[in-house]
Write a protein that binds this DNA or RNA. Sequence first.
RNA 1: GUGGGUGUAGCUCAGGUGGUUAGAGCACCAGGUUGUGGCCCUGGGGGUCGCCGGUUCGAGUCCGGUCAUCCACCCCA
Length: 386
Amino acid sequence: MIKAPRGMKDIFDPRFLKIFDVTRKIAENYGFDYIETPILEETSLFKRSVGESSDIVNKEMYQFIDKGGNDVCLRPEGTAGVVRSFIEHKFDRQATPKRFWYFGPMFRYERPQKGRLREFHQFGVESFGVESIYEDINIIALAADIFDELKIDYTLKINSLGCPECMPKYKETLVEFLNFHKNELCEDCQRRIGQNPIRTLDCKNKNCQAILKNAPKITDNLCENCNKDFENLKEGLNNLGINFEIDKNLVRGLDYYTKTTFEFISNKIGAQSAIAGGGRYDRLVEFLGGKATAGVGFAIGIERIMDLVEIENERKGIYMGAIIADALPIIMKKAKNLRKETKVFVEPNIKSLKAHLKAADKGNFKKVLIMGENELRENTFFEKEL
RNA sequence: GUGGGUGUAGCUCAGGUGGUUAGAGCACCAGGUUGUGGCCCUGGGGGUCGCCGGUUCGAGUCCGGUCAUCCACCCCA
């Protein structure tokens, strides 16, 4: 038997569509336009944006050479493609901000586990050309609105990663601290010192956590501008009644983030507890060859929130069926008309009244219209509300 | 990539120490006297016991391998 590839799933769950509808509606209410970018992109796009030091690019990409000899891969995340499109269509040369939302499959070659698939779906938004911290607040509010609408409990964690002015200085002091404690840290953290030192901050090793408690924190080392923005961010969220926690150890796995960074966490879905993550990436457009443009966005992991969504299962639509074959053409015609107003299902098989009623019940229909011998003669329908 | 758990019907699972035609519940289908669903009763269809090999007179059961799946690490949404 041929099965779906490892870590990939067929989706029948009606909650998937519900999430699509809710995310779409809220994104559009916030003034975001839909964008669909190719699932296949040039590999170099992700190497340059996500970062070559990241595991995503390093070992998790579905990468191959196509028949034309191009080095391509299935997109492992959504932001890079949207930024590429933004630059390619010269939106960076216009002064007006651009706001996009997307919804689609992403691919990472990982070992599957709860909340972690090889093909998964993300809804995301990206805002270009707005430097104001209020755009960050907008975007966080957008995410919060989605979770509220879907009735999903979350904890919002925020942090600031600083800008090119304060981050490198901070990194130096952190590395200094780490090297001082090098022998006490776990193997992974020792490796991280050279590769990606800020990732040591969210190490799960208890011993490391104890040591890193005393490590210098980026939020204590922000430049004046970043610090002011971070203060305004907190104030802005409070103003909107959005609860948050400051997590000085919150870092992002993708290299392009600066300044505001945030994560929405759920404690009901296992170890992969992040249901949404994002932040600011003011340098990314420039880095990918566009004109320097501010950017901020986030993505929600659809499969991670699917189990948290409750769906109402009320009776809906009309079931139509025939007890004798001659009634079917009339039913077909009637159904065509009724469908202008509501959902109508026509059972093509001739069945007994009892069998029809049973099928309508199982199918969760609200109303039944059946035609048999008597109804055909009198030009009526057997009607019943379920 | 590393570690652990699990693979028997569409689903959830039983099947001591190897021994006839492999079971249950749910689901599905058909009936319970002419055309009224959900409840109940009766009957029925469904399984290469994940796959390959080994031990044995005999393997769902023991052994090895493999694949899949789940959970965790790593990483991330």
